[in-house]
């Protein structure tokens, strides 16, 4: 019996666990690669402005997330960008590979023959990117993970507690961090992040504005 029941199928609409919160915040949703994705809120200029001046956060739960178990040889504490995917090691024997949703099936297929256990955790983990000069301050409101340059340089990967739940943070770019956490906690984490960001003048941004801001 295959593990297909773990992987979202293109034949049915996939939703982020934060979709309701995003809609309530004014998100415009678009179907992309089988997912309802919050692509924009109040327009690209203000959203880009948020990422440039304070902190914007974007729901990226649609990213493919594949857990592999077995010796992977990746350096701990650091994510490796390879084949358009982030390779994020948790332990010497366990890592998570993050990719664009359209690439998940191919990635799974490729990894299956290489590692003893490969499991699609796309639905198990929600993801938020927090981006902007105050992003670190937003994180400081709910996690004790050290995100200073000296501790978490660009491409640094830090598993730890976020908002009192297990999670992990990947520094994708200079002021842009991708946070992973349990999907069932999506609604909760949205409120935590939104509360912290809004108190600092930040707010939600769509993935389109985020892509432009981080380009």
């Amino acid at each position: 019996m295959s593990y297909e029941f773990l992987t979202p199928a293109p034949t049915a609409l996939a939703r982020s666990p934060m979709e309701r919160q995003a809609l309530a915040a004014g998100a415009r949703l678009e179907q992309r690669d089988g997912w309802n994705v919050a692509v924009a809120y109040d327009g690209e200029p203000p959203e880009r402005g948020r990422c440039a001046a304070t902190a914007g956060f974007a729901d990226r739960s649609h990213l493919g997330k594949v857990e592999l178990q077995g010796s992977h040889g990746l350096p701990l504490g650091q994510a490796t960008r390879r084949d358009d995917a982030w390779w994020c090691p948790f332990t010497p024997e366990k890592a998570l590979v993050l990719c664009e949703p359209a690439d998940t099936a191919t990635l799974l297929e490729r990894l299956e023959g290489t590692f003893p256990t490969v499991v699609d955790l796309t639905s198990a983990l929600a993801a938020l990117t927090i981006s902007g000069p105050l992003a670190r301050e937003v994180f400081a409101r709910f996690t004790a993970i050290d995100l200073r340059d000296s501790a978490t340089p660009v491409e640094g990967f830090r598993p730890g507690s976020v908002g009192r739940t297990p999670g992990a943070i990947l520094r994708e770019a200079g002021e842009s961090w991708l946070m992973l956490f349990g999907a069932a906690l999506g609604s909760y984490m949205w409120t935590v992040v939104a509360d912290a960001a809004e108190s600092l003048g930040g707010g939600p941004v769509g993935v389109d504005a985020l892509a432009v801001a981080n380009a």
Binding site: P17, S123, R164, G182, A184, L185, S187, Y188, V192, D195
Partner: peptide, 14 residues
């Protein structure tokens, strides 16, 4: 501080 009350919700909660 601010209260954190991690609540898990199923994908069908809404």
């Amino acid at each position: 501080g601010r209260p954190f009350e991690p609540a898990k919700r199923s994908s069908m909660h809404a």
